[in-house]
């Protein structure tokens, strides 16, 4: 099957994301890349745990002073929901319903922006109310690096999904762009999973000990 072929609902296969060799390679390569990303975040988590609450003096804010459940919970809910909406988008992609896929991707993007806005507010809050900055302590460096790396991933994911939506807005689905949408959604899920760990390790564990 040629990737450029004009598609109809009748011709649309069950797994449009891996019909050509290029698509299969992309699919597998991206999974492997996520394996590498896992190790990257594992290293950042390990660094964070080693440096948690390591501050130069008693007047510096610690994890238990900083974190609040409501905000972290809201961010978690928003990001988890955006993962669900991206699943809907992929469902419609598999059913060759381009407009519905675009709609759900759009909702995913809006939720992603909501998450980023809350994160920026959160950082701003820590910096201005607690003097907890990237350079104030080893704890600060580790916190902003771990959470910031995740935030940068969210931002990159948003730019990626928007680019895909705009680029393909007028031409609909094909076996050439289906794998592109698919791996972007994989990436989005991965970001979500990392956040679940950040929520547990940084925020929940930060408040209990």
């Amino acid at each position: 099957m040629h990737a450029e072929e004009k598609m109809t609902l009748e011709k649309w296969p069950a797994s449009p994301e891996k019909q050509t060799l290029e698509a299969k390679n992309k699919f597998l390569g991206f999974w492997l890349f996520l394996g590498g990303e896992t190790v990257l975040f594992a290293s950042l988590f390990a660094t964070y745990l080693a440096l948690k609450d390591k501050v130069p003096g008693p007047d510096h804010a610690l994890a238990k002073d900083l974190f609040e459940i409501p905000l972290a919970f809201l961010m978690t809910m928003i990001l988890l929901t955006s993962s669900l909406t991206s699943v809907y988008a992929m469902y419609h992609m598999k059913n060759f319903e381009f407009k519905k896929m675009q709609l759900w991707l759009g909702i995913t993007v809006i939720l992603g922006f909501g998450f980023l806005a809350l994160e920026i507010y959160e950082f701003y809050h820590y910096v201005h109310h607690y003097g907890h900055t990237f350079t104030s302590s080893a704890f600060g460096s580790a916190f902003y690096t771990l959470v910031g790396f995740h935030g940068a991933h969210v931002a990159f994911g948003l730019a990626w999904i928007i680019t895909l939506m705009v680029r393909n807005a007028k031409r609909g689905l094909s076996l050439y762009n289906a794998p592109k949408f698919y791996v972007a959604s994989l990436y989005w899920h991965f970001i979500d999973v990392v956040w679940v760990f950040i929520f547990s390790v940084v925020y929940l564990m930060g408040m209990v000990g």
Binding site: A50, L51, K54, T135, S137, A138, G140, S141, T145
Partner: peptide
């Protein structure tokens, strides 16, 4: 200006 390895600021 971060402090990951700056012992004086809690680094290791």
């Amino acid at each position: 200006g971060s402090n990951f390895f700056v012992t004086a600021a809690g680094g290791n």
